[in-house]
Design a protein around this nucleic acid. Structure first.
Length: 266
DNA sequence: AATAGGAGCAACCGCCATTCA
DNA sequence: GTGAATGGCGGTTGCTCCTAT
């Protein structure tokens, strides 16, 4: 059983949350019996009304705990097992675009939960990027070459420069826009162009800067104009579309180069 | 064989957005 | 319009298992 004393002491200083404040609520790992109770109840009565579900299902758990258990483990659509290389690749690209928006990222990877992706990122991918000299938060080089022209385009740490637009900050667009962008990105980059420049952290830095610059101009435009949600969404989508198209163009150029090299070597 | 340390991951937490009376 | 209830999210914790010593 987990030691929850530290959490309880923290909670005692705060207003208790309504669903978990009752005495007698069970915590910690779920037993197979509890899983069965929950799964059978949801199969029979469906998801939803999580706060009252435990009582109806005969569980001594809070509603949040039931929801989490169902969403992350019991749901039939949840895929178990290792993250495949193509899934990892998609996570990397989506994270680069969206930052730590795990539920959005998970929404584009069938069978994977936000918790699973978040864990995988924290335990595998962030370390992998660091080992490659890439900042996992910004997807930019950790130690840029001072002689490189790239240095001028590297976004400083947040708050250090009010004019900088680090990717993570920029990624905070509304979910509807993000979803549309991801949809087009997935079709364009993942399905049709699996080896796109976008995949490679080092090669994509210029694209990333373009991304930031585009967002900056977008941001400045918003400051000048009265806010119009749909219009700005469209502008943002168009910008991202153009960014994606640039990648497609880069890919096509690379393919042509590869073909020429091949012909030369014949 | 014992144990220390790290990795992986399930679960909990607080906060925020949305819904509804 | 307002406040309570609810759902959902991202950050964090700590337990379990594995590996190195």
């Amino acid at each position: 059983m987990r030691n929850l004393s530290s959490r309880n002491s923290t909670r005692s200083r705060r207003t208790p949350t309504p669903c978990c404040s009752k005495v007698g609520i069970k915590r910690g790992p779920w037993t197979p019996e509890e899983d069965e109770l929950l799964a059978n109840y949801i199969k029979k009565d469906g998801e939803g009304r999580w706060r009252t579900l435990p009582k109806r299902a005969g569980l001594l758990r809070c509603g949040k705990s039931c929801r989490l258990r169902w969403m992350n483990y019991l749901r039939p659509s949840v895929k178990r097992g290792r993250i495949a290389p193509d899934e990892e690749d998609l996570i990397l690209r989506l994270h680069r675009l969206l930052g730590n928006r795990w539920s959005l990222i998970a929404g584009r990877i069938p069978g994977r939960t936000d918790n699973e992706i978040k864990n995988y990122w924290n335990t595998h991918l962030s370390k992998k990027l660091i080992s490659q000299g890439i900042d996992p938060r910004t997807h930019k080089p950790l130690y840029p070459n001072p002689n490189s022209s790239e240095i001028a385009n590297i976004a400083p740490t947040q708050n250090s420069n009010p004019n900088s637009f680090p990717l993570e900050e920029n990624a905070r667009v509304d979910p509807a826009t993000a979803t549309r962008v991801i949809e087009s990105l997935k079709i364009t980059n993942s399905d049709q162009f699996p080896n796109l420049v976008f995949d490679d952290g080092a090669k994509s830095w210029p694209n990333c800067d373009g991304f930031n610059k585009g967002l900056q101009s977008h941001h400045e435009q918003n400051k000048e104009e009265d806010y119009n949600g749909n219009e700005n969404e469209d502008t943002f989508s168009l910008f991202l579309d153009s960014l994606i198209n640039e990648n497609v163009f880069a890919y096509q150029q690379q393919q042509q180069c590869n073909l020429l090299d091949h012909l030369v070597n014949l």
